[in-house]
């Protein structure tokens, strides 16, 4: 009899464990502010030479020494411009570990100088979009309200309503933009990396791109209502309603129903 009574006292243990876990996960909701944009610098001839050396050592195994690419392995980089290099290498997507449609973000492998050298060399192969200037990506100069309109028409379907990310087909996904720098956001729109379509300046003008950056930057203020639960919509709200809200209340019913000692 005592054995049964004793066991009954530990019934709440799994519930407490779940709550503790959830409390840990709450950290996910915290939103980090994007760091400020860096200015692009004029590429010198030296940079081009240094970039070519870096390319041969780190990128040529897939893209080829002349950056013409290989069918089914890696695309040609002629004409993709400095912006694409800065985005792909600067976010750690390149060099890739394995060829595939999704380039996962990894720790950045090169210094900003090296990235600019690589970009300078690739840009020298053929004209393409350049790295944006600091003014072009300054959120303070953008209109977040217009950015909201542009973002939700062109971006939210994949990246979520405030850029929390979302799933694509066959395991691909649109990454969260909440920690992406304004420059990289700009470059991604301009160059259309991986699955993402290209949003050239005729589609989303440079001003509109800056508005989008201002809209995303505004999200670093957090949500007026409190923690945002990952900003992924009603599914996480429902999960919290069950686990936290109903969980806490049911825990209290167990206290209410238990006999006082």
């Amino acid at each position: 009899m005592h054995a049964i009574a004793r066991r009954r006292h530990h019934r709440a243990a799994p519930l407490l464990l779940v709550l503790a876990l959830l409390a840990l996960i709450t950290g996910i909701a915290a939103v980090a502010a994007p760091s400020t944009a860096q200015a692009s610098t004029e590429a010198s001839a030296d940079d081009v030479v240094a970039g070519e050396r870096l390319f041969a050592a780190n990128c040529a195994s897939c893209h080829g020494l002349d950056a013409q690419g290989q069918d089914g392995v890696a695309p040609s980089l002629v004409g993709i411009g400095a912006a694409a290099v800065d985005f792909q290498v600067g976010t750690g997507r390149m060099p890739m570990q394995a060829s595939g449609p999704q380039a996962p973000v990894k720790p950045v492998q090169f210094s900003q100088d090296q990235i600019e050298q690589l970009a300078a060399w690739v840009a020298s192969l053929g004209a393409g979009p350049a790295i944006p200037t600091a003014d072009e990506v300054d959120p303070a100069l953008g209109d977040p309200a217009n950015g909201m309109l542009v973002f939700r028409t062109n971006c939210a379907m994949c990246h979520g309503s405030i850029g929390g990310g979302g799933a694509l087909t066959q395991g691909k996904f649109a990454p969260s933009l909440l920690e992406t720098t304004p420059t990289h956001i700009y470059e991604a729109m301009l160059t259309g990396p991986q699955s993402m379509p290209v949003f050239n300046d005729a589609n989303i003008t440079p001003e509109m791109k800056r508005d989008v950056i201002a809209y995303l930057d505004f999200q670093s203020n957090g949500s007026p209502g409190g923690l945002s639960l990952g900003a992924i919509g009603p599914v996480s709200e429902g999960l919290w309603a069950w686990l936290v809200l109903l969980g806490l209340i049911i825990a209290s019913t167990i206290w209410v129903g238990a006999r006082s000692s």
């Binding site: 449609p101 379907m157 994949c158 694509l168 087909t169 691909k172 649109a174 259309g192 991986q194 699955s195 993402m196 379509p197 290209v198």
Partner: peptide, 10 residues
């Protein structure tokens, strides 16, 4: 949701 590489629309 248009995927540029696969030309799939989700």
């Amino acid at each position: 949701l248009y995927e540029q590489q696969t030309h799939h629309l989700l």
